[in-house]
Design a binder for these strands. Structure first.
Lengths: 197, 197, 197, 197
DNA sequence: GGATAAGCGAGACGGTACGTCTTGTCTTCTC
DNA sequence: GAGAAGACAAGACGTACCGTCTCGCTTATCC
């Protein structure tokens, strides 16, 4: 979010304002979805001035991104059960479960913003997407060292893990059930272990 | 788009207006992306009144959808080479190639609209997504009858074909290269042929 | 209203349409005042096409004028009691009473239109205002021949009769009571009989 | 116009904006009459955003009223020559002269708005009309104390002063000449001095 | 402790787009 | 031709956000 590297003179930013903005964003997106989220609305809802929001964030996307990151910070130890299928299933079930709640709405908002601004899309990729991909990459690497993965390229496998999720977030979020997590993780596991040509 | 099924009384809609709206939408999205597309802008660019646009389309999403459908109508014979990998590769190469051009921008615009309105998302699914999925379903069915597909469920395979594309459209459209088409089609082909558990 | 002097070929105008337009205008102005009167609304309310209205009338003002003239056609024998005060009182009481009803709203609408279009203002003057003034002129002339009027100029007296009415129609129509009619007619009668300087 | 009595927090309104709006309104009404005055046009002409206009004024009427009040603020010491006829003549000549210029067009616009909205009509009465009437009331009171006025009721006399003016503004503003001012003031003076019945 | 610097709530500002409403004209088919 | 139906260009309506700005006031650190 903010930075303010150098001089530490002047009144310091009020952390309560940061928190109020985050909370208002979560509330709004939970209640009305992305349509109901506006900079103006966030400021009003959080009882904070617009300037206070713009001082911290360059735009709506950044606010959403910050809320999502703060929201997700509490979780995510990458599963490590000793079995690729098990690991993927756990991760996808947890991830999909989240998409059915507030984080799902935030991810949709994020996608909408990313679609309107390639620069922001890159920001999201660097901040959020990469770390999620890295988690799956870790799982695959561990499985690979166990001999469970013969597929040469992690990247494609990771795309197959996350691609369908975003596809669903865009067009039909209700698709992201536990059953779908099972099907997908099984498919990727099978492909990962398929003998190379 | 318009419908107007029953009553054929009154002055008929001017097809030139339809065309002008479509063309203006294509021009705008090509020049400035989704951000540059507004109902007002479309009307101005096409030299048509706003009413004329709103008479035909309920919102920006519908205009974009119509333009995309009209644009795509000229193509798409589902490939049928007798080989699953070949068919998928051809389809993905063509599809990805399109995403690098105007249809890609239109698809992004469509996604952005869908994310803001679940009802519209369903409209898109019914109008566009389903038929694209059906094309891949056909390819898979033919291959299945040849014994090239053992994977029990078409749906997941289709998700694996299109999921990564939308994922890329949201966050990094430059990913949609021929090389990526090759990788993806190979992956899906392999999975489709993988021995059942 | 219309004229259509020359060629009498083709389908003749439907008098029912004329009547429907008039009635719809009266209904609308009675229910919602001038704000509620639009060419579109009149056509819709009367079940007539807009074209049918425009074929007859050049604009909203003409429609209102026509309705008012048709409405008023049923009345107005100029009072002739043999006494100026009595004549004026009768005329003003009747006129003011009308202003408290539908004709009042029509007159307001007429004024609003006249204020927006000087040409139409002249039309109204020629069509309506002059005849009303002539009625008072007649009363004055008769009284003058009886010696009840010494004031040299009819015109100013007539202005003093009608001016306050329009003043009230613009800013506060509720002022047009019987009491006010009494006061006004008395004032004008007094002035008319006042000895010349 | 604006009010905003209490809270003096936040950025203060820019007086230059107020002035620009007034000037644009005057310009537009002078150039094109009431027809040429629109909220959109005022904003455009004054180089001000529509919001800035709507923040200050509830509608077109209020803008016009404000412009008129500001315009008229520079004048109007009630004449006091010691003679009723003289006072009325002076006042009417000046008033009529104004009606031949921009204030006349503004008054016409005001009337048009008042005719479309009774609430606004009351606003105008309270803001503008009353004070004009009070000026004439003063003249009459002074003359009455001199014995020049025997007519019992100021109100009717004032109606006879202003009624014909509005009558003319609605239907034929060219009538408001110096000669007409002379005739009218003479008539009212005569009536005011007429012996009670 | 007084100066300096930044944060803060409030709200105005120029812009842009929204979706609706009217006006007056035009175009089709039916009577 | 008239008539119903309804499309059309033009343009105003009033509202909602965007991102920036300008006030008066409140904290902080630095000299």
């Amino acid at each position: 979010m903010s930075s303010r590297v150098g001089s530490m003179t002047g009144r310091p930013r009020d952390p309560a304002v940061d928190e109020a903005i985050r909370q208002a964003t979560l509330d709004l997106v939970a209640e009305q979805g992305y349509r109901g989220v506006s900079m103006e609305g966030i400021a009003a809802r959080s009882g904070v001035s617009k300037q206070a929001v713009y001082r911290r964030f360059a735009g709506k996307g950044e606010v959403i991104l910050d809320s999502l990151v703060a929201y997700a910070r509490t979780r995510l130890p990458t599963p490590d059960t000793g079995d690729l299928g098990e690991d993927l299933l756990t991760l996808l079930e947890e991830t999909f479960a989240a998409q059915r709640g507030v984080p799902g709405a935030l991810n949709q908002a994020l996608a909408a913003e990313a679609l309107q601004d390639p620069d922001f899309a890159r920001r999201v990729t660097d901040t959020l997407i990469q770390s999620r991909r890295a988690a799956v990459g870790e799982i695959l690497d561990r499985a690979r060292s166990r001999g469970q993965v013969t597929y040469p390229d992690n990247d494609v496998l990771i795309d197959l893990v996350f691609g369908p999720m975003w596809y669903a977030l865009v067009f039909d979020a209700t698709k992201l059930t536990d059953a779908y997590a099972t099907e997908l993780s099984a498919a990727v596991t099978t492909l990962a272990a398929s003998p190379p040509d």
